[in-house]
């Protein structure tokens, strides 16, 4: 054995005996980290004086967590874009029924208009008007939010934080205002 080899063997046996002493992997990890030159700013006793750890949500509950969330304007536009889309998906047969009856013949046209005055399927006309109003809002919101989205795809100015907030407010306001105007017409206010 060379001298170097002897030294290495001694080192290894020393380390092995220390590891045996430590006995467990976790203890060995502690042993290794203690050898590292990283400065340790906080000892265990300092931890209590540190700022309270912020809550971390890994699995958001739709019923207990979401209602307490405060969304920015752009967040509202985003989620309502989805809500309006799903709503129109669900009401698609109603839309096609309106297309069918309004366009097929004079007689079916009369059936179309009477659904909103007399009613249909045992539901009063008011219910069908409210459904139509919901569809109007959904279409307007989806349309305007979509135009905002398309503009964001082609313009870097549109994706700044300030611009995003502004256009989101425009979408929310305009869709509600237009829904109000059309709704007033639907319910015969003018």
């Amino acid at each position: 054995m060379t001298r170097d080899g002897q030294n290495q063997a001694i080192k290894a046996s020393q380390q092995a005996s220390r590891m045996l002493h430590c006995n467990r992997i976790s203890s060995w990890l502690t042993f290794v980290t203690q050898q590292l030159p990283t400065p340790r700013k906080h000892s265990m006793s300092d931890k209590a004086t540190l700022a309270k750890k912020r809550p971390e949500f890994r699995n958001i509950n739709a019923f207990s967590d979401l209602p307490s969330y405060r969304l920015p304007a752009a967040g509202w536009v985003s989620i309502l874009h989805r809500v309006s889309g799903v709503l129109m998906f669900a009401l698609m047969p109603f839309v096609i029924w309106m297309f069918d009856t309004s366009i097929s013949s004079e007689i079916s046209y009369a059936r179309f208009t009477s659904a909103f005055s007399v009613g249909l399927l045992g539901l009063p006309g008011m219910v069908w008007k409210l459904l139509a109003l919901a569809l109007m809002w959904a279409y307007l919101h989806h349309f305007l939010a979509g135009v905002r989205h398309l503009r964001m795809d082609i313009s870097h100015d549109a994706v700044t934080k300030a611009s995003g907030t502004n256009t989101a407010r425009v979408v929310l306001t305009l869709s509600l205002a237009l829904t109000a105007v059309l709704g007033a017409k639907l319910f015969g206010l003018y």
Partner: peptide, 20 residues
């Protein structure tokens, strides 16, 4: 379900379109 729903709606809409 979404696929069936959409194809059914699409068929109805196209029928309406070319029927009148």
């Amino acid at each position: 379900f979404a696929i069936v729903w959409l194809i059914a709606c699409g068929g109805w809409a196209i029928q309406v379109l070319w029927r009148f």
